[in-house]
Design a protein around this nucleic acid. Sequence first.
DNA 1: CCCGATTCCCAAAGCGCTTTAGATACAGCC
DNA 2: GGCTGTATCTAAAGCGCTTTGGGAATCGGG
Lengths: 339, 339
Amino acid sequence: MNLKQLSTMLQLSQTTVSRALNGYPEVNEETRRRVMEAAKRHGYRPNPSARRLATGKAGMIGYVMPTGAAVDIDPHFVEFLSGLGDYARGHELDLVLSPADAQDEETTYRRIVANKQVDALYISAPRAADSRIALAHQLGVQFIVHGRSEGLDFDYPYIDIDNEGAFHDATRLLVQLGHKRIALINGDDTQTFAIFRERGVRRALLESGLALDLRHIRSEVMIEENGYRAARSLLEASDAPTAIVCSSLIMALGVVRAARDLNLSLPGDLSLVSHDDVFPWLKPEHFSVPLTTTRSSIRAAGARVAERLAARISGLEDGARGEVWPVDLVVRGSIAGAR
Amino acid sequence: MNLKQLSTMLQLSQTTVSRALNGYPEVNEETRRRVMEAAKRHGYRPNPSARRLATGKAGMIGYVMPTGAAVDIDPHFVEFLSGLGDYARGHELDLVLSPADAQDEETTYRRIVANKQVDALYISAPRAADSRIALAHQLGVQFIVHGRSEGLDFDYPYIDIDNEGAFHDATRLLVQLGHKRIALINGDDTQTFAIFRERGVRRALLESGLALDLRHIRSEVMIEENGYRAARSLLEASDAPTAIVCSSLIMALGVVRAARDLNLSLPGDLSLVSHDDVFPWLKPEHFSVPLTTTRSSIRAAGARVAERLAARISGLEDGARGEVWPVDLVVRGSIAGAR
DNA sequence: CCCGATTCCCAAAGCGCTTTAGATACAGCC
DNA sequence: GGCTGTATCTAAAGCGCTTTGGGAATCGGG
């Protein structure tokens, strides 16, 4: 069933039917009702390719997905995706994933924009002065960044969580508990979220006259193994920290394992705070010692990104508003006063 | 730069240029060379919407993604996606995710097929007599199932791992080590993979004159918490198992935690084998006691699915061939002879 | 009662590509 | 020389939708 068939069936022109369906004002309400009703009854659905060709709009949002043998998509992505899906589902928005060589994402960005395959895209895991953001900005495509970059000479729309504040607060709490040697096991420090987190820790320590010892910082891809290694090397050193702040629950698994291997008990010998992105399949309250966390749902962020993207597409939103979400600090058994 | 511009620039008709570019035989090789060269030099790229409208082909593969408040996309999906991406990247294949209400995926399937939004789709996590497979079959769209269903009265193309064989072999090894009470902590048993796994365990036990005690089976969504609960309830019972076979590394985390809480040591008091889908961020060799696993890369499966999907789209593959991959049994420190 | 403004609708022209149905030219054959 | 074949290219017709540029009623005001 296409427009033509529907319109001859209704004894109307394609123009009128199209307008009736798309809510244009120059059509009689009674006619519109008839058209709407007939469309529904016959299950008419406009062909998206045709519409796309005519309007230049795609009705999809895009994501350039870095891939490659050396690239692991991390599990945060799937949670974010769930969130996107939650919103998109109700709005018949589809999501196009364009896999790109991690070494050369630019080509793919240019391709999908030139092809008008998507109306808007989102950019995740930004780095300092992120070139993808600059590119999207320059290409004039609608986009939203999940996270923030730094050192770009223009504003852009983003949503981010208050990484600095979260890690500041967590660290301050540890300091208040009497800890002096506090270590940070961070994610890949080319990513801005990691930079902000380090900044938060540093600021909290500074406020108490302490300083973040460079030897007490580790930055690695957030996998269990790296959490273990980092913790191990920190805890075996002579000036071992009495508290660790950790950027991910998955790394925290490694930290707990390291502590156990070294016969250190939580929170007696070591206090641990981790950031929690709220994975349904791994919860901080179900660690052998329930973990104190800074918590922010990455899934909720996904839904919000989709919502704003949709708003931008339909022209309800513009400008470069940044949105920063506060982060909960949830205290559980993994922290205690320093001995 | 569109076809028309390119063709007037070359003093050729659109037809000829189009044919030259698409490799049709009825064009002079010399002309083709000229056209190709000019296209490259001017960065001409056919508009996908127009092409789609004209051919009815989409150049994309689709996935209907169940979402909803109660639905968590599990982290296996992201690994699978990485694999799809690995292949798709080199072939300019994009992937469309269509979020659907988990209660009513059918509508979405019908929509994307009717709209010709995708050339082919893949179906994951099949259940017994899976209605999505039946629907895709009936709608005549190209598809591949990742996993297998049972009880469908037609053949369909799939790729699956030998779940039954893997769990059979793992169980047999435990039996050979002298274990008599072996428990299974399985995934959601409406999914066929779980059914096959249980079958494997059951068969191995039967072969040794043992039987799988119903009280020694647990089937739950594969999250850490459920692994813990299941293990706890199994191990606290009077006829506690001496060995556990577990369907996922994430659940195995919970099993290990439960054992520790109950002061049971691995492998002294309890042998543990888990299935490992090969997550980069959580590896069985990095458990406090390295885990014996049945191993199969879900990422490799993703790449293979993409490859076959592409082959089907271009007509290189048809029919209903099923592919079953063998699974490695990797022995590490978490198993020992029964006391 | 006439006229301009409104209201409602239509025909037709695109959007950029593929493909059908020919055209043209040249060779080979009887 | 006329005819069939083959190679090469073209004009034009879609694909299904949106949108431009009117046209025909209808209406209110002078």
